[in-house]
Design a protein around this nucleic acid. Structure first.
Lengths: 109, 109
DNA sequence: TTGATAGTTAGCCGACCGGCAAAGTGTTGG
DNA sequence: CCAACACTTTGCCGGTCGGCTAACTATCAA
């Protein structure tokens, strides 16, 4: 039934966790190894790796193993999908002029 | 740092479901009653109501009951929180100039 | 007042999520 | 060769999620 909407499912699901958002924020400053990323979190490694896996599966990061170290890199292009969805929503709002819109747009713009 | 990152948890969680995103898209065209919103979905009403509840709890919609009809309205201001998070991420990327950025920004801008 | 309408409440179910510990794999350094 | 290191695999656990049915409440229309 819902063919084609799946990528956003995984992306939003991945973003719905503070640990994973923190990982993304850290990776915003540049690539890092799993162990290095894990340090700030009081969590066993296997648990942490599940977060990494969720981020990778959703396409928000890319990882590559060199020797015994796995390095994680932000996949910026994927963020554009979220941006695109937001933009599409706003496009749907366009033209509607409720009292509400007058209020909201005045505050934002 | 960010004392209140919990709202984003609920928001992204709510967005991570195609049914709920479809509801939001429909509400983009203006407020609607629960029954009216539910029609396109092959789903029992109690199940559907859980989606409505998730959207309301996350702040993405507001609902009001008048008589026996509950009307749902998009809460546009909440979308700005998502936008704000995305913006903050991009701010973290700023200044870093990987090969990747050259590729991505060419496509986006 | 009776019946249809529009949600709501309650309870059940299987699947998935986020955490753990224990033990295994494969590099690297000495 | 051996030990330390950096994950990885396995298997378990309780809780939440998304769906259902059945039964209930509260309007509105006739």
């Amino acid at each position: 039934m819902h063919a084609g909407s799946e990528p956003l499912d995984g992306i939003f699901q991945a973003l719905a966790d503070p640990t994973r958002r923190a990982i993304l924020a850290r990776l915003g400053g540049g690539p890092a190894a799993v162990g290095e990323l894990a340090q700030p979190f009081d969590m066993a490694l296997p648990s942490f790796m599940k977060h990494i896996a969720a981020l990778e599966q959703s396409g928000l990061i890319r990882t590559e193993k060199s020797g015994r170290v796995r390095t994680c890199t932000l996949e910026r292009a994927t963020f554009a999908l979220v941006d695109g969805w937001l933009g599409e929503q706003r496009r749907l709002w366009a033209g509607r002029t409720d009292r509400l819109e007058a209020f909201v747009t005045r505050d934002i713009t």
